[in-house]
């Protein structure tokens, strides 16, 4: 799949933003006033910024509002609804915390649940696609959720939880890659089934239907070199999980230094997750590539 910056930014930032909102809704940390304002600004900034970025992906962004209508069947629609609901509920909750110094916990819990649901619905947009075996796995939502919670806990400064969540997310990441690499081969779809000619012999794409380019090739056929991908995986894993974890568990003295390290951990993590997301898209092979003799 074409690793469009808009979707990478969207899933990375909104995952972090909603992750942080989840923690805030649960009262971790329990903040009010200016401190709360800063936390919520970051959370909303990420969540809303991500959502806005996603509209750059649209051919007709001015009609984006129409996307809320099909919640009965469409995960994208559900995501939109969840996101707006999460933002509204958490907005109210934040209003209380920032301006009224109060916590409406019921709202907080609901908001937290909606935030996680948003991340889940986002992940389901990808997971539901049988056409992309690497995404069409139960590990996909697990990955999105674990990343979101790890990132959220990092941003929330949840010192105790964050290392564990990072470790879990890292493990999920490794599992996802391991399983994902097998996904296409085990999906049962190949040029034989794509063309229905498989039982006659080995099928090979000959002349393409067009020597010019088209939407399908641009959108679905993206080839990442194996070596390149391997390198990027190491980077993603190190930046996203290993290094932040080290930052967090380094036995350092002094609050400043601690905060500095936590800040570095956050930045590293964001860079790592973005890299992981780039790979998530770039390495995802759509079955339509088979028709072009490509994967």
């Amino acid at each position: 799949m074409h690793p469009a910056p808009s979707v990478i930014i969207f899933t990375t930032l909104s995952g972090l933003g909603f992750g942080l909102l989840t923690f805030l809704g649960l009262g971790k940390p329990e903040v009010t006033g200016w401190v709360a304002f800063v936390f919520y600004a970051i959370a909303f900034g990420f969540a809303v910024g991500g959502l806005l970025a996603s509209t750059f992906h649209l051919g007709r962004p001015e009609r984006a509002w129409r996307a809320f209508s099909q919640w009965k069947t469409s995960w994208l629609s559900r995501e939109g609804i969840c996101a707006v609901a999460a933002l509204v509920v958490m907005g109210l909750f934040a209003f209380g915390a920032v301006f009224l110094d109060t916590h409406w916990w019921a709202l907080g819990w609901i908001g937290a649940a909606l935030s996680l649901a948003t991340v889940f619905t986002t992940s389901m947009i990808y997971t539901q696609l049988k056409t992309i075996p690497r995404w069409n796995m139960s590990l996909t939502p697990v990955m999105f959720l674990s990343f979101s919670l790890a990132g959220g806990s990092l941003l929330a400064g949840a010192e105790a939880l964050a290392p564990w969540l990072l470790a879990i997310a890292g493990a999920v990441q490794l599992a996802y890659w391991a399983k994902g690499d097998q996904a296409f081969a085990t999906s049962g779809t190949d040029m034989g089934t794509a063309t229905g000619l498989g039982d006659r012999g080995t099928v090979r794409a000959f002349e393409p239907p067009h020597t010019g380019s088209n939407y399908l090739l641009r959108e679905f056929v993206h080839v990442v070199g194996r070596k390149h991908a391997q390198k990027l995986r190491v980077i993603a894993f190190a930046l996203g999980f290993a290094l932040p974890l080290i930052c967090l568990i380094l036995p350092v003295e002094g609050l400043m230094l601690k905060h500095l390290l936590a800040g570095i951990a956050v930045l590293l993590h964001i860079a790592g997750v973005a890299t992981s997301r780039w790979l998530f898209f770039a390495q995802a092979e759509h079955v339509v590539g088979l028709y072009y003799g490509k994967r």
Partner: peptide
Amino acid sequence: NCIGCGLCAWSCPYGARELDLAEGV
């Protein structure tokens, strides 16, 4: 009504949908 999100094309195994660049649908 189409917003040109492309998801339908992602979900089609056969490459039967193409987003028109000029019209965005």
